[in-house]
Design a protein around this nucleic acid. Structure first.
Lengths: 233, 233
DNA sequence: GCTAAAAAATGTCTTATAACAATGTTTTAT
DNA sequence: ATAAAACATTGTTATAAGACATTTTTTAGC
């Protein structure tokens, strides 16, 4: 099983497009200083407060970036899919991790030594610019997210999460089932609400024929309506 | 008056430390492609949705970065003080402005042509890295802010805002009065609450001898208690 | 396959905070 | 100096969403 994963895994230079701009030497440097780590379902990849040591790229699986707030309430900040880099922000900012990251499902993570990553950032301008773009996009998203989570009402927040998940992870073959299966609790933590309210609101959406549910499988029936609810707040 | 401002103004290379890493040629390039714009109290510097044309640095005055959310509710995302760059995130992300920026008080803004800014980013690695650090720090702040604004209760959010303002803008000579005078509405928009509730909560803090008020002048009496309230939520 | 544990579902009750309204106070403009 | 507008204050009411409790269903471990 683990062996199968090893052979299935695309090499680090292929999963993440950011390496495109590296010289052959730099590529070798990256390859020689990278390892793969495997994580079980629900296993934590790094904790808030820890000192970052590696720049990471999710090779496969799905993961959540989250923060524990007041009174052990959890807020999911961002979600990761294969090919996405993470864990590097803290290193660049020269601080500790600001968030936790955990795998939703069995995951493989490429880990590039921190000093190697920083060294390339400092020498290869195109590579540096590439990450500048990445952070610029993330910051815009984060600011929007702040406003959406604070101002929208429950229905709007949940509708937004469903649209986000479907856009981010895509649909299954039927073209309607969202290609990620979250627990109600995770869905609640993504949408800033209690688990009970996530369940209740999902049920309302089913009654209103906006979505269909089969356990954790969520199918979007009326995307237009969902979009409207998300927009209205 | 305007003339006085002109002569008082430090040159663009001095207000913002990011230029340190430029070559003499680049410095000249920046100087030759920069202008100064003056804004009146409450004047908007740029709007959400506009296409960015310049990288800007607040030369003097104070400004707010904010978003209009659902039902014309406003959320202040960030506040600017002299020497801080802004308006460049959208340019790097190759999109439109995600936020509005407006001056709290009469302000002077250095404006560097966008293509010049991008060109230097793409050629000077140290300069690029400098902005990478800037964005990395801002993203960490934004993520924390999301959680604080969604999970803390009203008192916690207001306490946090007061601590933030005092740290960010400093104190007056008395060592206690916060060196920025915000309207109740702005304070509310910074703290994600209605104006009425900002006023009510400020009054409670006064009754509890945590702060003292004199119009818009806010004096922190018991910082320890404020910190505790902010932490507890 | 059975038991224990975790997750989902639902109901009821409470409360924090927004919404609305009315009045007093300070700025600003002329 | 005066009127108008903006801002601050306070009270009352309504409600969205959390807290808590209970039951049902699903999942995981042995």
């Amino acid at each position: 099983m683990v062996k199968k994963l090893y052979t299935d895994l695309k090499p680090i230079e292929e999963v993440f497009t950011g390496w495109d701009v590296l010289t052959p030497d730099e590529r070798r440097f990256v390859k020689n200083n990278s390892t793969v780590q495997y994580y079980k379902k629900n296993e934590v990849i790094h904790y808030e407060g820890d000192t970052p040591t590696h720049m990471m790229v999710l090779a496969n699986g799905k993961a959540k970036v989250y923060k524990e707030g007041v009174g052990s309430r959890t807020q999911i900040i961002r979600m990761l899919k294969p090919g996405e880099p993470f864990g590097y922000r803290a290193m660049i900012a020269n601080g500790t991790y600001n968030t936790n990251v955990a795998a939703f499902e069995p995951a493989a993570v490429y880990m590039l030594k921190g000093d190697v990553f920083i060294s390339i950032l400092r020498h290869n301008n195109a590579f540096c610019f590439r990450f500048l773009e990445e952070l610029a996009a993330d910051l815009g998203d984060s600011d929007s997210r702040t406003v959406n989570l604070t101002q929208k009402h429950i229905r709007g927040r949940l509708a937004e999460s469903l649209l986000f998940l479907s856009k981010s992870y895509g649909m299954e073959e039927d073209g309607a089932t969202i290609n990620i299966y979250l627990s109600r609790e995770d869905l609640a933590n993504l949408s800033n609400m209690t688990t009970s309210n996530a369940i209740r609101t999902l049920s309302s959406f089913v009654n209103e024929h906006i979505i269909a549910m089969d356990g954790r499988k969520l199918k979007i029936i009326d995307e237009e309506k969902l979009r409207k609810i998300s927009k209205m707040g």
